[in-house]
Simulated scan of single mutants.
Amino acid sequence: MKRLRSTVPCLLAVAALSLIAAAPQARANEPSNWPDRLIKLVVPFPAGSVTDRIGRVLAQRLETNLKQPVVVENRPGAGATIGSDYVAKSRPDGYTVLLGANASHAVNVAFMKLPYDPVSSFEPISLVAAVPSVLMVNPGVAARNVNELLALAKASSGKLTYTSAGIGTTGHLGMEMLASMAGVQLLHVPAKGPAQALQDVMAGHVDMLIESIALSAPVVKDGRLRGLAITAQQRSPALPELPTLSEAGLPGYELLLWFALYAPAGTPQDIVAKLHAETARIFADPAVRDPLVRDGVTVVAGTPRELADFQRSEIDKFGTLIRKLNLDLKQ
């Protein structure tokens, strides 16, 4: 299979320097009167999700730095398109912004008719963070590592099952990419959200899943599920004992959840610049960055141009993957 990789590792090298450089400039070139009232940060996922957690950290610090209220407004549904469409159609004045993700700005475009254009309907502000996922199995599955799991899959002729948070989610695409790279067949049993997916594997109704490390780490650490590998190119401090899938026998495998800050298209560039500078300043603070890193989150806080380029590469990557695997995501 053609090697499909994101550009996050490249961005990290640039971001490490830009985080330091951006902080002293956070007050430079400020708009003369923005903000002078409440700002809404729309999260197109439910409260309690990884996106929601990062959004609330960002909102709290923006409120302190900008000296205006910043409230998180959860608008989940339809694969994150409801909240994203709301922001796309909002007034481009800097008072409504979006914390988007893979689903809303890269994956959905490959199989959905969206009510917005994920590129032209938004002003990119910053790629905020990326989060790896974990390949996990029920403890009753006779596989203690990736090689044993793949051998079991090859011997079972498509009888091994996996679940995901739903059709077209990162967990679904990640398992299909794994199956394609390994040359095995797996049966997809989609769940209604990540909580049900985890519960179905813990209960033994389904054999395995790939889910974000933020949700996976607690159930791996307490033994309810067996972690086999993570989906990033580097090991995670949240589960340092787990190898990457590349180390475990699938070279080049990488799957990351990512979160990015957007404003409606037409938002003045001085406001975009200030929001980016404040975002970089916030995530350069060890008090913000270090707890996220311990939980497996890779902080990026890249520039608007880096986000625009990265998003286009992700649209191409997921589009190619879906076409190559001939996935039917309209179920």
Rank of each mutant, 00 (worst) to 15 (best):
M1L: 13
P9C: 03
C10I: 00
L11T: 06
A13K: 14
A16E: 15
A23R: 15
A23S: 15
E30S: 11
L38F: 09
P44K: 03
P44I: 08
F45Y: 14
F45E: 15
G55V: 00
R56M: 05
Q60F: 09
N65D: 13
L66N: 08
Q68C: 05
P69N: 06
V72G: 11
P76T: 08
G79S: 14
G79Q: 12
S84M: 07
Y86A: 12
V87Y: 03
A88K: 03
R91I: 11
H105M: 12
Y116K: 07
D117E: 09
V141E: 07
V141A: 05
A143P: 03
L149E: 01
L150A: 04
G158L: 05
K159V: 10
S164Y: 05
T170R: 08
E176Q: 14
A179W: 06
A182W: 00
Q185F: 02
V189Y: 15
Q196V: 10
Q196N: 10
Q199D: 12
G204R: 12
H205E: 14
D207N: 15
M208V: 07
P218G: 09
L225I: 07
A229Y: 00
E241D: 15
P243M: 01
E247M: 06
A248T: 03
E254W: 01
W258L: 01
W258R: 01
A265Q: 09
L275P: 10
H276S: 11
A277S: 15
R281G: 05
A284F: 14
D285M: 06
V288W: 02
T298F: 10
A301K: 01
A301V: 02
Q311V: 06
S313P: 04
T320E: 13
N326K: 15
